[in-house]
Design a protein around this nucleic acid. Structure first.
Lengths: 216, 216
DNA sequence: ATTACTATAGCGCGAGTAG
DNA sequence: TCTACTCGCGCTATAGTAA
C-alpha cells in the first residue's frame, strides 16, 4: 500500500499522539504530489479507518487511529527484524578433525592472553573444527568482511604470528567463539574455541552436524 | 518509491547479508504482483544501484548494495523516531501560583510515601504549577489517556483521598514529576513535584515560560 | 482558505511471447 | 526453467473547477 507513505509522514508529524492541524495541500507538498491526489489518499485512509479527521475552526485536524498505529508498528517490527538479523549469523557445519594446529596456537601466550582478555574466558587448549555445508559457503565471506574482535599479531623470537579476529558464538546454547586469521587461504572450515572441551561437553563426534550462532 | 516494498522484502529474506537465490517470479508471488512487474522493478533497483544481481548456475542471485542498506536504515530510523517520540511528550507552560493545595496533599503520609517509593525521590513539600499554553491543550488529553505511574487513593479517618498518577519529567534538565488526580475537572494546569524547591533551584517567577519533558 | 468532484492524460500492470 | 521485451488496457494522478 502506497498510502503507508502518507501514514508514515503523518506519524512523523506527531499525528500518532494527537490531532494535528494539516491540510491536504500541505501533505501533498511534503510528499511531492498534487493536492488532489493527497485528498484522495486521505479519504482512502479515512475509509479504511487508519486515520480520523475533524474539521475545526482553522485547518483540518488529522489523527492516526489505533488501527493506523498498528500498521506502523507492524512495519517497524519488520525493520527491527531486518537489522537484528544483521547482527547475527547462523551456519550449519559438520564436525571434523583438524591437525591440532589450533591447539598449538592456543598454547602461545601471545594469543592465549589476548583471547582471555577480549573474550572474557580462558579457552580450552584445542579447537573444534567445523566444516560448513556447501550451501553455507557465502557465510564465510560475511565473517571475513566483518570486523569482529581484533586479535593482534606478535613476534616470538624469530617467528611472526599474524593478526586475526574472533566472534562470540553459541553452539547448542554453549558459549564459544569463532576464531580466524585475518589472512586466510580459501577454506570452508571454521575453528571454534570455548572454555570447555566442546567435543566432550556436547558429545560431538566427527560427522555430527551442528549449527553455530555467531554474533557479528 | 514503491520499490521500497520490494527492497524490504528482499531484506527480510536476508539479502542484506549475502546473495540469496531468488527469481523474479518468486518475488512476484510474495508481493502479489506479476512476474513481469517484478522483473521491471528488479531492473529499476539494479539501475539505481540499490540491489546487485548475478546469474548463477541455478537461480539468479540477488544482494542488497550498501546504498540499498542505507535506504533501509533511513527508513528504520524514521520508524524509530516515531516510536521514540511516542514515549515522550514536551509541553510549554507558564509558571503560576497555586493555592497551596498541592503542598497540603504532599504532607499526607498516604501520598508522600507512595510518591517516594514509586518515583525514587522524596518530594519537596510543594508543587510548581504550570499553566499550559493554549496551543498545548491537546497534550493534557494525552496525559489523561496515558497510564503513567499509578498512585493509589486511601482513607484517612473519615476523609477519602482519590487515586492519581504521575509521570517522570524534566524541566531544564532538572528531574521532576508531573502529578495529577485520575478524576480531574477540566484544567490546563499541571502540577510538578521535585526533590528540590524548583522555584528557587531554577530561579522561576510567576509568568516565566518553561518547557517540561514528560516521560509517558 | 479549504476539500473534493469530473475529465483527461499518462503511466504502470500484466498478457503474450521471444530469447 | 529463467528474464524481459512489446503492447494494450486500465488505473491513477493531475488540471480545472465547484462548493
Amino acid at each position: 500500500m502506497e498510502n503507508l507513505r502518507v501514514l508514515k509522514h503523518l506519524a512523523m508529524m506527531d499525528a500518532v499522539k494527537d490531532f494535528i492541524p494539516i491540510s491536504s495541500g500541505e501533505i501533498a507538498k511534503m510528499l511531492g504530489m498534487s493536492q488532489q491526489s493527497s485528498s484522495k489518499k486521505i479519504l482512502e485512509l479515512i475509509d479504511d479507518e487508519i486515520i480520523e479527521r475533524r474539521f475545526g475552526a482553522k485547518k483540518p485536524l488529522i489523527k492516526i487511529t489505533k488501527k493506523g498505529v498498528g500498521l506502523l508498528q507492524k512495519e517497524y517490527a519488520d525493520y527491527q527484524r531486518i537489522f537484528e538479523a544483521l547482527k547475527k549469523l547462523s551456519a550449519k557445519g559438520v564436525v571434523i578433525s583438524g591437525m591440532d594446529e589450533g591447539r598449538y596456537y592456543l598454547t602461545l601466550k601471545g594469543y592465549k592472553e589476548q583471547l582471555k582478555r577480549k573474550l572474557r574466558f580462558s579457552p580450552y587448549e584445542g579447537t573444534l573444527n567445523l566444516k560448513l555445508l556447501s550451501s553455507e559457503s557465502g557465510k564465510l565471506n560475511i565473517l571475513k568482511e566483518s570486523a569482529g574482535i581484533n586479535i593482534d599479531g606478535f613476534q616470538d623470537g624469530e617467528r611472526t604470528f599474524g593478526p586475526g579476529k574472533c566472534f562470540h558464538a553459541k553452539i547448542r546454547n554453549a558459549d564459544c567463539a569463532v576464531i580466524m586469521p585475518n589472512r586466510s587461504h580459501y577454506s570452508n572450515v571454521v575453528e571454534i574455541i570455548s572454555k570447555d572441551y566442546l567435543r566432550e561437553k556436547l558429545k560431538l563426534r566427527d560427522g555430527d552436524e551442528v549449527e553455530v550462532e555467531i554474533r557479528l
